[in-house]
Every structure is written in structure tokens, then in C-alpha cells.
């Protein structure tokens, strides 16, 4: 079967957009292989991979920004929608082009601990040109769609790669202005654990980005809390201290998260995105505006 790579690429990307992706692109596999560390390269996961397709879906609904952080932390993520599209796209490629494909597992590398992913979906998206690293802990931003959740498809179908975005929308002009005045951007100023810092250069571009991921994770990903609780209970001096170590309100909350779920552990608290003009005010970041644009079109 003769396959025109350009046509195939267009068909796959159109499939993704039709199914709800806001943006999609093909990453340069060679670049990914050079940048990703050993064990996390695309070929480590799929030895015969020829192309990595990245797609992004929108973040929260517009109303989500007005709810308290503790609620938004639980329902703000929309990544499962992206995985569904990626899963469909992998099927689409296999059925249309008979080329083995997978949707890239978004999970952590279970041999390396809870904060080490198998693959960096962020790297795929950035190299595929559908997002650029921001001062907000390298969360990818898009000038048109704000911030998105990403999923990737690995396939043995060879597709021509896209280029990374020519310009980084971060920092936005208003953020540069604020930085000039107080030395911090909104995301840096309003982070609840102050895990963000960095500098903007004379040209208004990112010079340095510092991200204390450990501090961020302490708030949102509390993997260490339960064993710590058990250790404290085992070392308790008396019954009352043991009871408190296991059942005080904070600890009961953790048990609940671990056992029932309640949305699981947070991925992030969204405060940096809540104050980010790109995330919230980009033309198509807002689902309501997207709908109006669609209707007008």
C-alpha cells in the first residue's frame, strides 16, 4: 500500500481535531531521541516507532476559574479526553494505514517512582509545535488556545515532522510589565507555595525559569504522606498519639484520597494558570469564546 506521508499526516491530524483536539502536530523523532534521557525515549517504549503525534485538548470550562482552588484542583484536569482521542487516533492509523500504533501511556514509570513519567508528553508537544514552555514551571502554553492537556500517539507510520513554535507566548506583555514593576510575574507572585521564580530579559523574553517541583508536589501530590502517617503511628508513644496519627482530620483526608479517590491526588493547584493571561485570555482558550467563534464561522 502506497502512503503519501503528507496526506496521511493531514488525515491523522484532521482526525484528532475532528474528535475534539484543539491542536495537533508531529514531533521530530530525531529531536526527541536526542533530548529525552535514556529509558524515556520514544524508541525505548516502541522500538520501531517512526512518528510521534501530539495533540492537545482544552483546559477547564470557563466557569471553573471562579471556583475555589481546592475544588478546581480536583475537577480541572481534562487529560482523559486527550487520551481518548489519542486512543482513537491510534486505531484510525492502524485501520486506515495498517501501521502499528499506540497511544502513549501517560502513566508514571512504575519502576522509578511516582513522579517519573514513562514519556514526557510535554516534550512531544513542544517539539511538535503545539506549546511552548512558560515561566509557570514549564507548563506549555499556546498563543491561541492557552494551556492544554496533551496526549501522544506513537506509530510506525512515517509522517513529516512539524517544527516547534517560532515564538514563545510567555511572558505576555502584561506579565512583562508587572515583572518590570515588582520583579515577579503573576504566576510567580501568586503561587501558594512560592515554587516559581525566574527572570525576564531586556527583550521581554524568558531568561531563566526556576521551578521547585518538590514544593509544588508537596501540596498536590502527597505520595509520601501515607507511609509517613503509618511511621508516625508506629512510633507513637501512647494510644491517643497513635489514634491521632492515623485519624486526625488531615490524615483522614489522605486516607480518603488514597482509598476512595475523590479525584485522586491533585496534579496541580492551577493557581499559576488562574492568573496567567495566556491561559485564561488567549482567543480560543475560553470554551465560550470558542463556541461563539464556531457559531460565527
Amino acid at each position: 500500500m502506497e502512503i503519501d506521508p503528507e496526506e496521511a499526516k493531514q488525515a491523522v491530524l484532521e482526525y484528532c481535531l475532528r474528535k475534539g483536539a484543539l491542536a495537533a502536530g508531529v514531533a521530530d523523532l530525531g529531536a526527541l531521541e536526542r533530548i529525552a534521557p535514556p529509558g524515556h525515549r520514544p524508541s525505548d517504549l516502541m522500538p520501531k516507532v517512526k512518528s510521534v503525534i501530539s495533540l492537545g485538548v482544552g483546559g477547564q470550562t470557563q466557569g471553573a476559574w471562579s471556583v475555589p482552588a481546592k475544588a478546581m484542583g480536583y475537577f480541572g484536569s481534562t487529560e482523559t479526553r486527550a487520551y481518548t482521542i489519542a486512543y482513537g487516533a491510534a486505531f484510525f492509523i492502524e485501520s486506515k494505514y495498517q501501521k502499528p500504533s499506540i497511544y502513549c501511556p501517560p502513566d508514571m514509570d512504575n519502576e522509578k517512582g511516582p513522579r517519573v513519567p514513562l514519556q514526557s508528553l510535554k516534550l512531544h508537544a513542544e517539539v511538535a509545535g503545539i506549546g511552548a514552555r512558560s515561566l509557570a514551571g514549564d507548563i506549555l502554553l499556546h498563543p491561541e488556545f492557552g494551556y492544554m492537556y496533551f496526549a501522544s500517539i506513537f506509530t510506525e507510520l512515517e509522517l513529516p515532522p512539524d517544527q516547534p513554535m517560532a515564538e514563545n507566548p510567555c511572558p505576555a506583555p502584561s506579565c512583562v510589565s508587572m515583572y518590570r514593576q515588582i520583579g515577579r510575574t503573576p504566576c510567580q507572585k501568586f503561587c501558594p507555595v512560592q515554587c516559581l521564580s525566574g527572570h525576564i530579559d531586556e527583550a521581554g523574553k524568558q531568561a531563566e525559569m526556576h521551578y521547585d517541583m518538590a514544593a509544588c508536589a508537596e501540596m498536590s501530590q502527597q505520595y509520601e504522606a501515607v507511609p509517613a502517617m503509618l511511621a508516625e503511628a508506629m512510633a507513637a508513644e501512647d494510644d491517643q498519639a497513635r489514634e491521632e496519627a492515623l485519624f486526625d482530620p488531615d490524615n483522614k483526608m489522605l486516607w480518603y484520597k488514597m482509598s476512595v479517590g475523590s479525584g485522586g491526588l491533585l496534579a496541580q493547584c492551577f493557581e499559576c494558570m488562574r492568573v496567567c493571561p495566556i491561559a485564561t485570555q488567549s482567543p480560543m482558550a475560553d470554551p465560550i469564546r470558542r463556541a461563539i467563534a464556531k457559531t460565527d464561522a
Binding site: V67, M219, P227
Partner: peptide, 21 residues
């Protein structure tokens, strides 16, 4: 594990909906 601090979650509880840290 040694550096982990469980109390940080409390910072979130009064945020959002117009309130800023």
C-alpha cells in the same frame, strides 16, 4: 520523603474564586 511537608495543602483551602495567595 525526608523533605516532604504535608501541611502545604492548607495553603489551597482559602484560595480561588478571586482570592489570591
Amino acid at each position: 520523603r525526608r523533605r516532604f511537608n504535608t501541611t502545604r495543602f492548607a495553603r489551597l483551602l482559602e484560595l480561588g474564586g478571586g482570592k489570591r495567595f
